[in-house]
Simulated assay, not measured.
Amino acid sequence: MNAPIIKCHNLSHSYSGKAALSNISFICESGEPIGLVGPNGAGKSTLLNILCGFMRSASGNVTLFGHKPGASALSGRVSALPQDARLDPAFSIGEQLCFYARLQGLNTQQAKHETSRVLEAVALKDVLKEKPSVLSHGMAKRAAIAQALMGKPELILLDEPTAGLDPVNMRKIRTIITELSPVTTFIISSHDLAELGRLCQQMLLLDKGVMSTMQLNASENNKPTRFLTLQMESCPAPDVQAKFNNVAGISRVSNPQKNEFIIEYNPEIQPSMDLKIITCINDNNWQYRQLSQGKTLEEKLFFDGM
């Protein structure tokens, strides 16, 4: 039986007496991308640094593919992209990627082939001889991701891979991750919950050094009720809530922020609640922006149960 990709048990670390990680335990199996989320200072970077072997935990145990982080047996199997990764401005993109490939044990010919492969994977095959200074921010981010793809690793740790990118480049990186997911497991740390919601079904939530896990599909499908999230144009919130509460099958309507409504309903009473909501909106001449199944990832992770 294969060892889990990552296995953490009672992992703890602190800085100057302040806990960054507090006895966290979790297991990650190979498969779909996994999101790592939490507020600033939650311990995400500390965890990633420990997983990469850049630092040791104060206590607890962690293994990747059954080996300690940083072990030689993990060479070529595990890769990482720090949030602020930069390529050396003095050398061409191709020279640097070839150098990284040689560090993984590839010979010169193999390194050149691998460099061409990863640059093509991120749609940058034309910048092989260019220096980093000519790249836009989005291109530089993709070039850094190309370095993380070297050697076809089985596990890639990405820290804010889409931070600061425009929608076009965000989509390109999302496509890269999606296309590689059948053979590579990604752990993605990000504050962009919309992006994570598109990519990941499993979430690791860190808050003040304490971890909890969530399987997004299971979190709502196992409940007897369902949810809709409605984004309205400017509207009279009390009237909207009152009208929706009169629709058969709706058990609760909340208004967590301006022009946003979360509708809890019983699908056995009304399986087509989305159509009922749209009918109600039209009957009252309201305008809406979006109606989606379930709660937003933000609501699931940070506000459920509050």
Rank of each mutant, 00 (worst) to 15 (best):
D166M: 00
C28R: 11
A42T: 01
K243Y: 09
P82Q: 12
A194C: 08
Q202C: 01
E95Y: 09
A237D: 12
D126V: 02
L135D: 04
I93E: 07
Y288T: 03
Y15E: 04
Q270S: 09
M203H: 07
R198P: 01
A111H: 02
P167M: 01
K295I: 00
S251M: 09
Q270P: 05
L204K: 07
C8P: 01
V240G: 07
R142W: 02
K243C: 06
L165F: 05
M273P: 00
N255W: 08
H113E: 08
F227N: 11
E260I: 05
R56M: 06
K68A: 13
A218Y: 11
D159F: 14
F227V: 03
S72T: 05
P89C: 00
P69G: 05
L119V: 03
V210L: 14
Q241W: 04
M170V: 12
H191E: 04
N259K: 07
K131N: 07
L180Q: 11
L11F: 10
D239W: 09
F303R: 14
S272C: 13
M203P: 11
Q287P: 01
K7V: 04
L193A: 00
K152A: 10
N222C: 05
K300S: 12
H9A: 10
N259D: 14
E298I: 00
P224M: 14
Y265A: 03
P39C: 08
E95C: 11
A101T: 11
V183G: 06
Q109Y: 14
I173N: 01
A73W: 14
T108Q: 12
C280E: 15
S116I: 03
Q201K: 01
A242Q: 15
L74G: 09
T115C: 15
E299C: 02
F244H: 06
M139D: 09
K129L: 02
G66M: 02
P39G: 10
Q287F: 11
Q270A: 04
C235V: 15
S14W: 13
Y288A: 07
L103C: 09
A19D: 10
S30A: 15
N266Q: 12
V240L: 03
N23C: 07
S254N: 10
G197Y: 03
G94C: 06
E114W: 10
L165S: 04
S181Y: 13
P256D: 03
A194Y: 03
C98H: 09
L11N: 04
G294K: 02
A242Y: 12
L155H: 09
A143T: 00
P167T: 02
S189D: 01
R117W: 08
E298W: 12
A58G: 09
S219H: 03
E260C: 01
D304S: 12
I269K: 06
E114Y: 10
R198T: 03
A3W: 15
N246C: 13
M55C: 07
L205M: 10
S75N: 15
G105M: 02
N107K: 08
G43Y: 12
L81T: 07
A140C: 09
Q257E: 11
G60W: 13
G31K: 13
K172S: 03
S116T: 06
A90L: 13
I262F: 05
E114S: 01
S254G: 01
F54M: 13
A3N: 12
P39E: 15
Q257T: 15
S254D: 07
E32N: 14
N169E: 05
N245Y: 11
N49M: 04
P82H: 14
C280K: 08
V118P: 10
M150S: 02
